[in-house]
Design a protein around this nucleic acid. Structure first.
Lengths: 201, 201
DNA sequence: ATGGGTTTTGACCGGGTGGTCAGATGTTGC
DNA sequence: GCAACATCTGACCACCCGGTCAAAACCCAT
């Protein structure tokens, strides 16, 4: 069970994780099989298990990597910037994440939906702490009258919900919109309007 | 494979569906096993299969029942009512659905997340048609200047996203909020404010 | 009580799944 | 070229899972 060192190890580990993301995000943990992942990766099943000790370990690696990417846009929200612009910027970055990494979004969603059995720790630690910190920043801005007074945590929830919806419920969104639409472009415009009105002091 | 007729058949069919909802909504279709469902239902596995021809059939029955419940709140939105009150009412009913039927919400979410393999038809038919109809009503209200001009379909998406979030991501919501919170009460207040500001002409 | 229909179950089956292993094949430094 | 090590694979295993079936247990009208 080598930690990536050589070129081959690095390349194959990445190939496997990429394939695993594809399969886990569309089938869930139990729905995915090592054979499927192996096929997508273009490797044999025993070869997967040469690079990762178990199916569980592959999944765990994906989740761990994911969390950082996922929280970055919120980390970037700057207490020293312009409040409305900062919240808007956060919303835009999160929507971009949904657009560019829909599989990651779905992987995350499936995990939380099922009670976060393999992520509880990270959620109760890192994620909760970061939201608490940024809620403080938002509350400060509200106290200063620079954005409308709202429950800051639910404001964050609203950004999560509204942006992730377009990745997680992609099938439904596209079906309802019909052809000839760019869901993310329209969502961007809609959310700009929404948060402009919501945040105005 | 009897269609419910006698008391026993009715009672056991319901027991099975209730248990299946519990298990499917927390494990997904492939993650769930008949043994788990049987255990929760307090029946033997072969006995389940006396009432339903297959695992698939149990799942299908749940989904079919679900869709109607799920669309009812939108159906009730009345073109002849007061626009802001009607949209607000829809949002409130949808939030109540999340509060009262979180398992159903998660069952639905998992299905869509995985590409709606067993629901595509219903989504492309019933659901899409209903949204199209109600989007027309919303557009009419906007033309009359009675609510703000917005993309009506994305307005509906926003209600779905913001209300279902509290059921689907329950674990995350509760972790971030910490103890001593009533997520749904707070969400209700937050969403009232949000839609009041968003919809005002 | 008894007989016919309904409900329930233990035992079993075949296919799929995660994981192992011995050995084959490739790669690299000398 | 070759030894030492890294990478890869076919064959295999034990377990799980959805589903079957024959027979047992139960229910109830007569």
């Amino acid at each position: 069970m080598p930690r990536p060192k050589t070129r081959i190890q690095l390349r194959n580990s990445e190939t496997i994780l990429e394939a695993a993301l594809e399969v886990f995000s569309s089938q869930g943990f139990r729905g995915a099989t090592l054979d499927q992942i192996a096929e997508v990766a273009g490797l044999s099943k025993p070869n997967l298990l040469y690079y990762f000790p178990s199916k569980e370990a592959i999944h765990q690696t994906l989740l761990t990597r994911l969390l950082d990417t996922w929280l970055d846009p919120l980390r970037e929200m700057d207490a020293k910037g312009d409040p409305v612009a900062e919240v808007m910027g956060y919303m835009r970055r999160k929507l971009q994440l949904s657009r560019n990494y829909p599989r990651e979004s779905r992987l995350f969603a499936i995990e939380i939906l099922q009670g976060a059995p393999r992520m509880r720790e990270a959620i109760e630690g890192e994620l909760t702490a970061l939201v608490a910190e940024k809620a403080g920043v938002l509350r400060q801005w509200m106290d200063e009258g620079r954005i409308a007074r709202l429950d800051p945590v639910h404001l964050v929830f609203s950004i999560w919900a509204l942006t992730q919806h377009y990745a997680d419920f992609d099938v439904q969104v596209r079906s309802v919109l019909g052809e000839g639409h760019d869901p993310y472009a329209e969502a961007g415009a809609f959310l700009e309007t929404l948060y402009a009105r919501l945040l105005a002091p």
